[in-house]
Structure formats: structure tokens, C-alpha cells
Amino acid sequence: MSAVSSSSAALQPAAPKVLSARYMAWYRFSRNPAAVIGAFIVTSVILIAVFAPLIAPYAEHVGSVVNFRARHLPPDLEYLAGTDKVGRDILSRTIFGFRISLLLVIGVLGVSVPIGTILGLVSGYAGGMTERVITGLTNIMLALPPLVMALAIGNVLEPNLTNAMISVTLLWWTWHARLVYRVTRTVASEDYIEAARLSGASHMHILFREILPNCVAVISVKTTLDAAYVILFGASLSFLGLGVKPPTPDLGSMVADGRQYLPDMWWGVLTPGFAIFYATLGFNLLGDGLRDMFDVEA
């Protein structure tokens, strides 16, 4: 009898394994070719920026080096991307230009994301006068054209990386505040939030232990997509002369310098312009992949 029961048990199909939500999210991400390419591009940009002194063929050309005998040389085996108007290697300066772009991303999003997240949480949860004041301030700031605001601040303050971060950060927190506000308003009406409130949980506990975890996915997607816009926005400011001071290499200012000699000396624009495209494409593809992985709208 025991032999029959054991044989019948062996013939029964094994119980299917319950796949975790984290595994399914990673599965969706890994099966998205664009997301994988975006992750590869972003990783390569970060590695290039970190190891720039080791990768750049002429790391000394980052500073105030002048070699008029080598000015405006086209790409060749010695200078793979050509040289600029004072004889500096464009490829080396482009590699170091990634550092400025990533520093701008870290500085802007490192400040604007926490500010926008906290204001969105508070306004969506508190309601009443607090909600009206924060949402009103957010709408006012959203009505200001970002580029015009940045130009005004850049003309008042000294053009450098810190002031460029300030000019971008002053308006960037609004998008995160509005996004987190919408999520918070939806989550705050859930039954488990009311149960936590009735059980005596503090407002801080409800905000940061109950509501904030539900916002992590949309914040991650929005932050990744915003990194591309910050790089492009920072390059625009540098193109207009409101970025870092020369001779520090910046992708936007390198494009601005190279455009003066178009179309004959096209290599002065091609390499830094492609670097901007490469970095923004990577963050956009990665953001789209994260959006599909978390299955959210941002």
C-alpha cells in the first residue's frame, strides 16, 4: 500500500514555484533590449568619468595647455578626434567632460529629488491649507520657463558649476513634488493607512514607512529620466556661456567653441556633440526600462 502511494505521489506534478515580484521585475528588465543597452551606456559613462585620467590619451590637455602648432588638426592616429583652436586633444577633453555632466546630475538631483519628495509627501498627506500652499508654490514655479530662469540667475551670479547647479535646482524639484503628490493622494486613501492611523502610528511613521515605499518606483524612474534632461540642460547653459569657466572641459562649451569653425573643422563639434547624445540616450533608455520593470507611469 505504501509502495502504491509513493509511486502515485511521484507521478504527481511538482507544485509550481511562486516567483517573487522582485524576480519578475528583473525578468522584465533583462528581457528588454533597450533597457539593457541603456544600463550598459550609463555604466560606461560612469566608468569613463571615474577613470578619465587613465583613459584620456592626453590628460594634461584638460588644463590651460596651448600648442598652436597642433591647432585644428583633423582626426588621425595621434589625435583620434582631432584638436581644438589651441591644439588640445578633443577626445581627452570630451572624456573629462563626462565628469562635469555627471557632477551636475548628482548635484541637481541630489538636492531637488529629496526636496520635491518631502514637499509632495507632506502636501498629499496633510491636505488643507498645507496642501494649497505647497501646490500653489509648485504651480507658480512650474509656470516659470526653466531656461529663462537659469539665464537670469547665470547673468547675476558668476558662471561656474555651482551656480549652474543652483539655477537648475531652483526649478527641478517641482516635477518631483507634483509626481509624489499624486501618488501620495492615492495611497493616503487606502485602508491600511487609516488602520495605521487608528493604531496610533505617528505622522512621520505613516509618511516615511507606509507611503514613501509606494513612491520609490516612480521616483526612481523619474530620477533616471531627469538625469538625461539635466545633462542636456547643463550643456545648453554651457553652450550659452553660463557653465563652467575655461579651461575646464565641458561638453556644451566645447560644442560652442567648435561651431565657430564649421563646416571645415567639423571634428570640433562632432565628438562632444556625440558624447551628449550618448549620455542622454543611455539615461533615457534606462529610464524606460525601469518604467517597464516597475510597471509605473512617470
Rank of each mutant, 00 (worst) to 15 (best):
Y79M: 07
G234Y: 01
M1I: 11
P246W: 07
A195L: 13
E190K: 14
Q12I: 11
V108G: 03
L109A: 06
I90P: 07
L285N: 02
S30Y: 10
G87R: 04
L121N: 10
A3C: 09
W26C: 10
I100T: 15
L232K: 01
P16I: 09
L109W: 06
P249G: 05
N160A: 05
Y23E: 14
P75F: 01
I115C: 09
I211R: 00
R69C: 09
L207F: 04
T184E: 07
E210G: 09
L142H: 07
N139E: 15
R209Y: 05
T186K: 13
M293P: 05
R185M: 13
S20K: 05
R71F: 07
T135W: 08
S199G: 15
Y27P: 06
S30N: 12
V133F: 13
S64I: 09
A21W: 10
L237S: 04
A35M: 09
E210A: 12
A150T: 02
G252W: 00
P57T: 03
L281D: 01
E194V: 12
I48L: 11
G289W: 01
L281K: 01
K245L: 11
P53W: 04
M1W: 11
V255I: 11
L232W: 05
M1D: 13
L240T: 04
Y79V: 09
V50I: 15
N284H: 08
T138E: 10
S202Y: 02
V108C: 04
Y261T: 13
L11T: 11
L19A: 13
T130C: 13
S44H: 01
V221T: 02
V66I: 15
A228L: 00
A298Y: 12
L237H: 03
I55F: 02
N163Q: 03
Y261C: 08
E190W: 12
R182D: 11
P13N: 04
S92A: 06
R71L: 11
G287N: 05
R178D: 04
L198N: 12
F29E: 01
D76P: 06
R69P: 08
E60A: 14
D250H: 02
T83V: 02
Y278M: 00
N163D: 03
V50K: 02
F29D: 02
I48S: 00
V244M: 05
P247R: 05
V122D: 06
L103I: 15
A15R: 14
D257E: 15
E210D: 13
G120K: 09
L281G: 01
E190Y: 12
P33M: 07
V168I: 15
S8L: 14
L262W: 02
T271F: 05
